[in-house]
Amino acid sequence: MKMNTRRNFIRQLGTGMAAAAAYPVLSPLLSCNGGSRTAAQKETITTSELFFKISLAEWSLNRALFGGQLDHLDFPLYAKENFGIDAVEYVNQFFMDKATDQSYLGELKTRCDDHGIRSVLIMCDREGDLGDTVPAQRKTAVENHYKWVEAAQFLGCHAIRVNAAGEGTAEEVARCAVESLTELATFASDYGISVIVENHGGYSSNGKWLSGVMQTVGLPNCGTLPDLGNFCIKRTEPVEQTVEAYMATECLEEYDRYQGTAELLPFAKGVSAKTYDFDADGNETSIDYSRVLRMVKEAGFTGYVGIEYEGHSLAANEGITKTKAMLERIGSGLV
């Protein structure tokens, strides 16, 4: 099975995604260096009663980053100044050639330390398929992630997020993913870093399949990053290699998100709060967040829930703000 996911699409398209700027990216009220803020945005919602912590996934601002409106080094402070979020999740694509650049990483770490911002994890894409059935390619994929483990430790992250991708039968890819994850997690354990797998399309969006992989690996620093909105196993192919075409693709086979979430939560070392659009009451229109956050709480999870806004009807800043408000409102009611 060929995994048609965000990771594969971007790998094919490369970093020439400035075309994404055709969509609204940053609210006109919020410039890259802070800008002016509305009274509503200045309002502080008490989050001390939440059972989880909130972080911001860098992918939420991918259009601004790919379009040159926001620099990766500025992302942490941008998250804190504009959204009041002091924990961030990086995407390696925005500093792909900097994993071993101690000067660059040092600058990023200093900026975070100076402003009390926590680096939570690094989402790793475009480093090869950990479920590749070709041994040499699988070995390369594993070794390609080593530098991100080291970078994560340097920045103070607790984990790197990887993908259990591969082509072949479900059993073949599972076997290869187990082998790769075991090797990578063993390497990462010496750095105090966890290796966590997101349901990211293909077999990995089948909760039973991915939970089975986790059970077989059985290492304490190998877990999952349940993405509450990413349970599409198979999509239509985009008619062309553009962001617009990819966003227009349809899901042909989808795993039940609530069943999948329940299956992945026992192994969760992070949660991705995917959002696309909101109704008049501020609720996500395609995911019952009251239901999934209750599941997260009942699973005993108390870590970071990362905001990952992927909608296109709102500017990124507005989508992030609405997601944060929804998480705080629903989460505070689940104490």
Rank of each mutant, 00 (worst) to 15 (best):
E89F: 00
E89S: 05
Y90K: 10
Y90S: 13
V91I: 11
N92K: 08
N92D: 04
F94D: 04
F95M: 13
M96Y: 14
M96P: 00
D97K: 08
K98E: 14
K98H: 09
K98T: 00
K98I: 09
A99Q: 08
A99M: 10
A99W: 06
A99K: 08
T100W: 04
T100L: 13
D101L: 13
D101K: 14
D101S: 14
D101N: 15
Q102T: 15
Q102A: 12
Q102E: 15
S103I: 15
S103Y: 15
S103K: 15
Y104A: 05
Y104M: 03
L105S: 11
L105N: 14
L105F: 08
L105D: 13
G106A: 15
G106I: 12
G106T: 13
G106V: 14
G106D: 05
E107C: 05
L108K: 10
L108T: 01
L108M: 10
K109E: 03
T110A: 08
T110Y: 03
R111C: 09
C112M: 11
C112L: 04
C112H: 06
D113E: 14
D113G: 02
D113V: 00
H115G: 02
H115R: 10
H115P: 02
H115K: 10
H115I: 02
G116L: 10
G116I: 11
I117N: 07
R118A: 01
R118C: 02
R118D: 09
S119M: 06
L121E: 10
L121Y: 03
I122V: 13
I122F: 10
I122R: 01
I122L: 05
I122C: 09
C124S: 08
C124K: 05
R126L: 09
G128L: 09
G128T: 13
L130T: 00
L130R: 05
G131Q: 11
G131V: 12
G131C: 14
G131K: 08
G131L: 12
D132G: 07
T133P: 12
T133Y: 12
T133S: 15
T133K: 14
T133H: 12
V134I: 15
V134R: 14
V134C: 11
V134D: 13
V134Q: 14
A136Q: 10
A136I: 10
A136P: 00
Q137A: 14
Q137N: 15
R138A: 02
R138P: 01
R138T: 00
K139D: 06
K139P: 03
K139T: 06
K139W: 07
T140S: 00
T140K: 00
A141T: 07
A141K: 06
E143R: 09
E143T: 08
N144G: 07
N144D: 02
N144V: 06
N144L: 06
H145Q: 02
H145F: 01
Y146G: 00
Y146T: 10
W148M: 12
V149S: 05
E150P: 12
E150G: 07
A152M: 00
A152W: 06
Q153N: 07
Q153Y: 01
